[in-house]
Amino acid sequence: MAKLGRMHARWVWLGMAVLLVWVALKPVTLPMRISPATQHFYDVIAGLPKGSIILVGASMGPGELSSVGPMVTAVAHQAFSRGLRLAVFDPNWDQGPTIVGNLIAQVAAQMGKKYGVDWINLGFKAGGAATLELAERNLSQAARGVDANGAPLSSFPIMKDLPALDHAHLGAVFALSVGSPGAPDFWLPYLTQRINVPLLVGPIDSYVPNYEPFVASGQFAAMLDGSRGAAQYESLLHYQGGATQAADGQTMAALYAVLLIVLGNLGYFAERRLRARPGRREARA
């Protein structure tokens, strides 16, 4: 019994790998309860007037694709189905706009939406807060006059309705947040708070507790609770995307973690009892 608490890490990892492969091959898809937070996120986007532009703050790297990628896809689904438009931009995370742009391009192709009309990828333009402040006055100047692929912005109809990132031209900002700079230390103080536009946030799971105070204070208009929130959001939109598939893995990982805690403690208490035995103490002495 004491051995249960001393299992080598490789067996722990192997167990996890087997469970994840199994659940990927045979999905169970348990029903999900929609949390008020997810419902509110959905409602904020649903409440935007048709034609509004949502700025997608692509503050992410390749590592976070599996966590926040499904959120981008789901937001694009809801936005395009409601006649909203999207603009991707980030002045901090160099790889984010390419990844997010590719995700939105897939949804746009499925839903028959045109690049430059229904959405645009302004790409990564270095400069952080200074670039964002400039974009608040003149977006084209902040984006150096070209989109992510180097095409002149003047050739895209959507840019006529988005000369600046300000209250008059933006419906909302959907900011991914996987580290710093992210939603609370960048998008909130340098854009949404200044121009009074709702900030929707898509964080990785580990940041959800850190961001709760911003939701409670109303500084974040709405937030998806990590991959759980993303799965619920997909469920609201009536489609099964990456987050729904990941939810099965999350279920297995949670159950496996509980099993490991039980096994570890069984081994721990068995070892303690073994050490406390008088015969063992004497033998050691």
Partner: peptide, 11 residues
């Protein structure tokens, strides 16, 4: 939190 974050919690 761990189990509650996965769909299995409510199940």
């Amino acid at each position: 939190v761990l189990v509650g974050s996965a769909p299995i919690g409510d199940f």
